[in-house]
């Protein structure tokens, strides 16, 4: 029986090294690219025939669209619609990363701290950039909220900085932990199937249920990731 952790091992497919830094195209990278390609092709296919009265296929991207725009309006306000593409992409990228990982022999890049961390880093940079763009120098107020006496600054500023940086960290850990646990559980239970012989039917049934549950979790976690990103985006845009 192979270790349940084996599925998470990153293997280089095309070794690339630039300036001493290893940026090999790995199985993780492959699934990132797959997430992009599959989500794009699926949406493109759904939008092949468009009409005023939407078909079932057309209504899928449309409901995602309505869902994301509702999310942005609710958490950021109407001005948040400027960043619609970013949030829309974020949601689909995470959702497809999670869902593609559920296929047998697939690799789940969303279960990797480094991968999701990179994504959160991009989101964080995005937040900082639009925050500075919107508030200019007043953006630094994020670390020293209004009404706090200046004497408290040495205490408040580090705390606020930690809280600011812990947001993407908590985002990352939540997604990674959920994905990892789900896949380990699937793998362990799948291991029982062979070990139990004829009685292995029980874990097969159980695993089927878990797969359904994992599909739900995959979407739910993508949703949570997106909602929290929206909330942080709102924080970046508004003063509290």
């Amino acid at each position: 029986m192979s270790s349940p952790m084996e599925q998470f091992v990153i293997k280089p497919i095309i070794p690339i090294e630039v300036g001493g830094v290893d940026i090999s195209f790995t199985n993780s990278s492959l699934f990132m690219v797959l997430a992009v390609v599959v989500s794009f092709l699926l949406l493109r296919l759904c939008l092949q025939k468009r009409s005023i009265v939407p078909s079932v296929a057309q209504s899928i991207p449309e409901s995602i669209y309505e869902f994301i725009s509702g999310l942005l309006k609710e958490n950021v306000g109407v001005e948040g619609l400027k960043y619609f593409s970013f949030i829309f992409t974020l949601f689909l990228f995470v959702a497809f990363g999670n869902l593609l990982g559920l296929f047998p022999y697939a690799f789940t890049f969303t279960s990797h701290l480094t991968a999701v961390g990179s994504l959160s880093l991009i989101a964080l940079c995005f937040n900082i950039v639009i925050g500075i763009k919107k508030k200019k120098i007043r953006w630094l107020r994020t670390f020293l909220p209004k009404g706090i006496p200046f004497a408290l600054a040495p205490l408040i500023v580090p705390i606020e900085m930690i809280s600011f940086l812990s947001k993407p960290f908590s985002l990352t850990v939540r997604l990674v932990a959920n994905m990892t646990v789900g896949h380990i559980m699937l793998k362990i239970i799948a291991g029982f199937v062979v070990a139990l012989g004829v009685a292995g039917v029980v874990p097969v049934i159980f695993n089927s249920c878990i797969v359904c549950f994992e599909i739900f979790i995959a979407l739910l976690q993508a949703f949570i990731y997106t909602v929290l990103s929206c909330i942080y985006l709102g924080d970046a845009l508004h003063e509290h």
């Binding site: 195209f25 990228f93 480094t114």
Partner: peptide, 11 residues
């Protein structure tokens, strides 16, 4: 580095 690079590209 590899993860960040490829994730940025794909994202």
């Amino acid at each position: 580095p590899s993860q960040l690079f490829w994730l940025s590209i794909s994202f």
